[in-house]
Computed example of a mutant assay.
Amino acid sequence: MGIITVIGSGLMGSAMSIPASDNGHLVRLVGTPLDREIIRSLQEKNVHPTLPCTMPDGISAFQFEDVRKALEGADLVICGVSSFGVDWFAQEALPLLPAGVPVLNVTKGLLGHSDGSLETFPHFFARLRPDLSFAAIGGPCTAYELGDRRQTLVCYCSEDLATAKFARDLLKTPYYHIVPTTDVIGVECSVAMKNAYAMGVSLAIGMSEAENEQQRNVKKVENSLISGAHDGKLHYNPQAALFAQSCIEMRRLVRLLGGNGDLVGGIPGAGDLYVTIFGGRTRRLGTLLGRGLPYSEVKKRLAGVTLEAVSVTTRVAEALRIRAKHKEVSLQKFPLLMHLDALLNQEAPLALDWESFGESGMQE
């Protein structure tokens, strides 16, 4: 039995406490300053306000001012903040971590720099705390389904394979399966970009909805997963084409950054992209854009919703533009991503260039 401290009590951070607790570990769940109501609810009722499952016994909840107590004797620390909380974690939590304790990161995203380089969060944290070992999680895993103990397969990546295996051995269960790898760039780039490209695939859903509404005298088809069209058929072809293009561009980006592009076809790439398309805020964002709404209107409709897809799309597109100026990459290899950036940051009209998609004649 070990002690696992989770900092960040949002959906995924809290969901990670479930396999940890099921394995008999003592779990200490620490809230950020934005999580005060969550921690209060857990302390008083053992109920998480937004994660629809019963939290196991043996999980202790701490407000952040008690984080030092929660870190005492920890065998593993899990960073459970979103990408918008990375700077806070780096400034407020990371300096407090005991020397030598391994850190497992659930946060998805990439940091952009002025020279066009992109940095993963584990590499960023390691620059700040070189005395610690860092690993990260990548793969198709929703907090809700992990909380329900659904069969789940993810990657744990770390430049130190022993760290990834250590975290795996603490957290693997009969329903939570973990593949360790040393390819941090391949995993982290894939899982970050899946948010951008899930928005891209969802454009086709919105396009189908808009077409459906234009057919006034034909019965509207509704489906809770894939929107129907006016002819009563499901429009899979456009979504599949955008899904394939997304994988092509993710593979190109992973290889550009020095990772293994083959991972894009597996758990952290296609796998995570698939599950992200089928629900939540990123799907809704892409659907609204696909219906032809300008992003300024979409923002109003999704006010208060954390849109990680917007930040990663903007950041990576800017990095590619910088690299293109230095003749390091051709933007023609990323037509879908660059159009997504134009939709978000230039209020460009939806105009997918289908002829630019695919791999024919493009050197990898």
Rank of each mutant, 00 (worst) to 15 (best):
L343S: 03
L343A: 03
Q214L: 14
R40F: 12
L111H: 08
S83E: 10
G232F: 11
Q214N: 11
L285P: 09
R321P: 06
R281C: 05
G259T: 09
E355T: 14
S21G: 07
P238A: 06
A164C: 00
S9H: 02
S330Q: 09
P19Y: 08
P268T: 13
K219D: 12
R255F: 01
L161I: 15
R252P: 02
R28V: 05
E92L: 00
S117V: 03
G147T: 04
G58M: 02
P95Q: 06
H230L: 14
T182Q: 14
K69Y: 12
M362H: 12
G232Q: 07
A241G: 15
G80L: 09
S356Y: 00
E359H: 15
L234T: 13
G112F: 03
Y144M: 14
E159T: 13
N23G: 10
L71S: 07
T32N: 04
E359M: 14
N217W: 15
N46Q: 15
R68F: 13
I137L: 13
P52C: 01
S117D: 10
L289F: 00
S21C: 04
L225V: 14
F243G: 07
F62D: 04
P238Q: 12
G112C: 01
H25C: 11
A270P: 03
P102H: 00
L110Y: 00
I178M: 06
G85T: 03
H339K: 08
I248P: 05
D22M: 05
